[in-house]
Design a protein around this nucleic acid. Structure first.
Lengths: 200, 200
DNA sequence: ACCTTGTTCGGAGCCTGTTCGGTAGCTGGC
DNA sequence: GCCAGCTACCGAACAGGCTCCGAACAAGGT
């Protein structure tokens, strides 16, 4: 719903004041700003702004003007479980979620979150306890970091490289962990790591 | 729910005090700060702040004010610039923002995001291009990762350790980078690293 | 048992928002 | 022209919130 000239002036003043003070102006301060002599005028303007949806107020509360929250695009993703080198995914029972920066995911694709256990990817700067954001898909490019299932036994996070003879190498990032080399047919990609979240 | 002028002043004092001491002020300290003569006034203000959801308290417990965890799943924070070892912060012009998981930040406190340049923290699993989430404050505990300003010259991200003789050690996490040892008076903490975001 | 800390109650004045009745100008439709 | 409806404004009376006080009570820690 569009505003009148006067209503826009008042709305702009509210924005300016709240931005500057972190609290809303009183009716009297608005009255002063616009040179009115009656608070009823201020009241009516604010009522109209509220009716049109530009502000929200609480009944009979001081300085209670606020702006309706603009819904930020936030993407809560399910935290499915834990991955470690050579260990199957340990699924979590409860539907825990973690909010992920919208910039991190490609919209329209399935994503989920896993908690990393162990230091098998330490040389890729992924440490124990980090959360990785995974784009769920079944194909990956050479060198991408993937969640891979070997012969339906163990889900691990590794970097994937194609070798000759239709074989693939699952490369950990830790000197003390050996790479896994298998027939491509025995390795199923479950997803590609697209992001990392760490809390200190 | 919005605050009145007085309520905001008191909330700001709470934030300042907790940021500085890591514990909440007593009623009497608040009373002193604002020149009241009755604790009942303090009590009523805190009750109002709690009613409006800005703080939480425990019944009959000393210094039990705390800030409720942020309900919003994702908070856009300003991306202020770049930090590197030994290099000043290079500020960005435009007001870029990055959405951060709400779980990562202490609500009620100022946070911002910096892009890490270089590999000086590689042994702490922070790599070139990562984004770190920083809680803006001027004090830090031993061993915390901080943004530190040395003699107003260079802002760096390092781990902070207190040495004897009122000196502090700024410890990088890279063998080829030497630690910096300075008088505590010459080192100003600008913030503490609370989270890390990486995109592949 | 004492001190510190937080809680509750009753009361006060001022601040703030609400409501109502009324004036005026402007616009579009009959 | 005349009326209806909207925006813009005024003044006064009212009601409840906000901010503060002092005193007494309760619980914890030392």
């Amino acid at each position: 719903m569009p505003l009148t000239k006067r209503q826009k002036q008042i709305l702009d003043y509210l924005k300016w004041f709240i931005d500057r003070h972190d609290y809303a102006p009183s009716f009297d301060e608005i009255r002063e700003e616009f040179g009115y002599t009656s608070l009823a005028t201020v009241h009516e303007h604010l009522s109209n702004l509220e009716r049109k949806g530009y502000i929200r107020r609480s009944y009979r509360e001081s300085r209670s003007v606020e702006f309706p929250p603009d819904v930020e695009p936030s993407i809560p993703l399910p935290l499915l479980g834990t991955v470690a080198a050579g260990m199957p995914i340990e699924a979590f029972e409860d539907n825990e979620t973690l909010s992920i920066p919208g910039e991190m995911i490609r919209s329209g694709f399935n994503h989920y979150v896993l908690r990393v256990s162990g230091d098998s990817m330490i040389d890729e700067q992924i440490r124990d306890g980090d959360h990785i954001v995974v784009n769920a898909r079944e194909t990956a490019e050479d060198g991408e970091m993937v969640i891979a299932l070997v012969r339906d036994e163990a889900a691990t996070v590794k970097k994937l490289y194609r070798e000759g003879g239709n074989r693939v190498r699952l490369q950990p990032a830790n000197e003390s962990v050996e790479p896994i080399i298998e027939d491509a047919a025995d390795v199923r990609v479950q997803g590609v790591v697209v992001g990392l979240i760490r809390q200190y």
